[in-house]
Design a protein around this nucleic acid. Structure first.
Length: 348
DNA sequence: TCGCATCGGCAAATTACGTCA
DNA sequence: AATGACGTAATTTGCCGATGC
C-alpha cells in the first residue's frame, strides 16, 4: 500500500505531527476540514487510549518524499521555481511514452500563472479544462500525457458534479484507468500534506504541474481523503475494541469483588460496618464507592494491565471518545488514579 | 427579505481497471 | 496462462452552501 500508513511509528518529519481528534461528525468535520485547510502542522494521526502505558498510536499517513515544490504559495514549501520543478519531476514516466517536453515549460508556466492570477477560481479551472486534455500533452516539463489516449472522462469536470451519462469517448472502451507514477503520487501526497482539500486555483496549478487534468487531481484528493478516513475508522474501531475489552474485564472483576463482599457479609454480618466517611454516593448512578479501597483494580491480575484503564485520565484519549467515556465514567469506582498535578488556579 | 434555481464541491457508495501472487 | 485478491482511479448519487435573480 502506498499510503505509507503505519502505526506506532514516529515520522522522520517529527515536530510537525498531525494530531487529529476522532470526532467524525460529517457536518462539523467538513467545516473543520476547510478550516484546517491552511494548517500545515498536520503530519500524522495520533491516537491514545486512556492512560495506556503504551505509546500513542501514531499514524504516519504520508510517505517521505523529497521536498517538492508546489504551485501555490505556502509558508512551508518553497516557492516553485521552474528549475526545482523540473528537477523534481524529471523522469516522471506515466502510462505513456513521454513526448517532447521541457522546453515549453517557461511558456506553459507563464500561461498557467497568468491564468491563475487572472481568475484563480472556477473560471481558471474551466479554462484549464477546456484547454486540456489532448493538446496539453506536451506542454509541460514532465509529460504525464496519458491524456492523449484518455479523452474519456474529460467532459466530466465541466459538468455539474461531473455526472454525465457516460463517456463520450471514441469507441466503447471508456474509462481507461490511469496509473499514476510514483513521482506523481508522491507529489500529490506531498501536496495533500499541505492541503487536504484544494481550492480551484490549487487544483488547476497542481494539474498543470503534474500534467493531469484538474478532474483527476480532484478525484485523487477525494479518494485520498476517503482512504484517510477509512484508516482512521479502522483505528477508531481498534480503540473501541480495546476499550470494550478493558471494560469487560473490569466488569468481571467488579462482579467477582461484589460476590466476595456478599459472601463476607453473610459470614460476618457486622464485619462490613465501614465508617461513613469512607463511602461516597455517586450522584448519577447511585452506587456506593469507597474512596479508601485498596485499589485492586490497578494492580489486580486480569485487570487489563497494559491496556488503558477506562477510569484513567481523559487527556490522552481521542477527543470524541473522551467525550464518550467521560460522561459515563466520571465517577471513580475504584481507588483514584494518580493524577498529574494540575496547574494551580490563578487566584484573582 | 424571502423563495427559488443553478452551480460547484464534497462524501459515500460503487464500479471497473491494473497489478500481483 | 488463468484466476482471484487487492489497490485505486473513476463514476454515480445525493447533500449542502454560495450565488444570482
Amino acid at each position: 500500500m502506498e499510503l505509507g500508513l503505519s502505526l506506532g511509528e514516529a515520522m522522520a518529519d517529527a515536530g510537525r505531527e498531525l494530531v487529529l481528534g476522532l470526532g467524525v461528525g460529517p457536518g462539523a468535520r467538513r467545516e473543520e476540514e476547510r478550516r484546517r485547510d491552511q494548517d500545515v502542522d498536520r503530519r500524522g494521526l495520533a491516537l491514545g487510549c486512556g492512560s495506556s502505558p503504551e505509546p500513542t498510536m501514531r499514524l504516519a499517513l504520508l510517505p517521505m518524499v523529497p521536498s517538492l515544490g508546489f504551485p501555490w504559495p505556502s509558508e512551508s514549501s518553497e516557492s516553485v521555481s521552474p528549475g526545482h520543478l523540473e528537477a523534481s519531476t524529471r523522469g516522471f514516466d506515466v502510462n505513456q511514452a513521454p513526448s517532447s517536453v521541457g522546453s515549453a515549460w517557461g511558456a506553459c508556466a507563464a500561461a498557467a500563472t497568468a491564468e491563475e492570477e487572472q481568475e484563480g477560481t472556477a473560471a481558471a479551472a474551466r479554462a484549464a479544462v477546456s484547454s486540456s486534455p489532448n493538446d496539453s500533452g506536451g506542454s509541460f516539463p514532465m509529460d504525464f500525457s496519458a491524456q492523449g489516449e484518455r479523452g474519456a472522462s474529460d467532459a466530466a469536470p465541466g459538468g455539474a458534479g461531473g455526472s454525465r451519462g457516460s463517456d463520450e469517448d471514441d469507441g466503447g472502451s471508456a474509462r481507461k484507468k490511469l496509473r499514476l507514477s510514483k513521482e506523481q503520487a508522491a507529489f500529490l501526497e506531498e501536496s495533500f500534506k499541505e492541503h487536504s482539500t484544494l481550492n480551484p486555483r490549487q487544483k488547476v496549478a497542481l494539474a498543470k504541474q503534474l500534467n493531469l487534468r484538474p478532474r483527476q487531481v480532484e478525484v485523487w484528493f477525494q479518494n485520498r481523503r476517503a482512504r484517510t478516513k477509512l484508516k482512521q475508522t479502522e483505528v477508531d474501531c481498534e480503540y473501541l475494541k480495546r476499550c470494550c475489552e478493558t471494560l469487560t474485564e473490569e466488569n468481571r472483576r467488579l462482579q467477582k469483588e461484589l460476590a466476595e463482599l456478599r459472601a463476607l457479609k453473610t459470614v460476618h454480618p457486622f464485619y462490613m460496618h465501614l465508617p461513613a466517611t469512607t463511602l461516597s454516593m455517586c450522584p448519577s448512578c447511585e452506587r456506593v464507592a469507597s474512596n479508601s479501597a485498596p485499589a485492586p483494580a490497578a494492580g489486580a491480575p486480569g485487570s487489563g494491565a497494559g491496556i488503558a484503564s477506562p477510569a484513567a485520565p481523559e487527556q490522552n484519549r481521542p477527543s470524541s471518545f473522551a467525550a464518550l467515556f467521560s460522561s459515563a465514567r466520571s465517577f471513580p469506582l475504584a481507588a483514584p488514579q494518580p493524577q498529574p498535578p494540575l496547574p494551580a488556579p490563578s487566584s484573582s
